[in-house]
């Protein structure tokens, strides 16, 4: 499975979720040979969004799943997540990204499977992507150019065991 569901998140829910994340506060990750970005692991306050993502994942899979890992990431100019920072996993997963950014940009998420391009998730606010992953898959979040001064990309990444 690899798909993008456009306008999957109601705008008000996105706004509330971002506000909840900002209340928790972001942690800077700066092991720069792997990535540079801000994150919140297992964030609280975004339960309604998680319900929405879980319903969508279950609906697309045809059976019920529940989240096993959730992380919010925020990238501004100069930030990136390299593929060798991707957490290795042996079990088949479904990875969903809820795009909470306020504006679109050209900075995407790239999935590779066995080293080959598999799926590109554009930075498209209010969209949710669903990508099945195997032990041979890898993902990176594109470097955000400093030429795009106001760029701010916010993604809630949820993984489901399948």
């Amino acid at each position: 499975m690899r798909q993008l569901v456009e306008n999957a998140i109601p705008a008000a829910l996105a706004r509330d979720s971002v506000a909840a994340l900002d209340v928790i506060g972001w942690t800077r990750y700066a092991m720069i040979d792997r990535g540079q970005y801000e994150y919140i692991d297992a964030p609280s306050g975004v339960e309604a969004l998680l319900v929405l993502v879980t319903r969508l994942a279950s609906s697309q899979l045809g059976f019920d799943v529940r989240p096993v890992h959730t992380r919010a990431v925020r990238l501004g100019p100069g930030d990136y997540v390299l593929s060798h920072h991707d957490r290795r996993h042996d079990e088949p997963l479904l990875e969903c990204i809820a795009d909470l950014s306020t504006a679109p940009s050209s900075f995407a998420v790239h999935y590779r499977e066995g080293g080959r391009p598999h799926f590109v998730v554009p930075n498209q606010p209010l969209a949710i992507s669903l990508v099945a992953r195997t032990a041979a898959s890898a993902v990176n979040h594109t470097y955000v150019s400093k030429l795009h001064d106001g760029a701010l990309i916010l993604r809630l990444i949820t993984r489901f065991l399948t």
């Binding site: 720069i32 040979d33 990136y80 390299l82 470097y143 150019s145 030429l147």
Partner: peptide, 10 residues
């Protein structure tokens, strides 16, 4: 050119 880069590596 403008926008080009090479991120940290060894």
């Amino acid at each position: 050119r403008a926008g080009h880069y090479l991120l940290p590596h060894t």
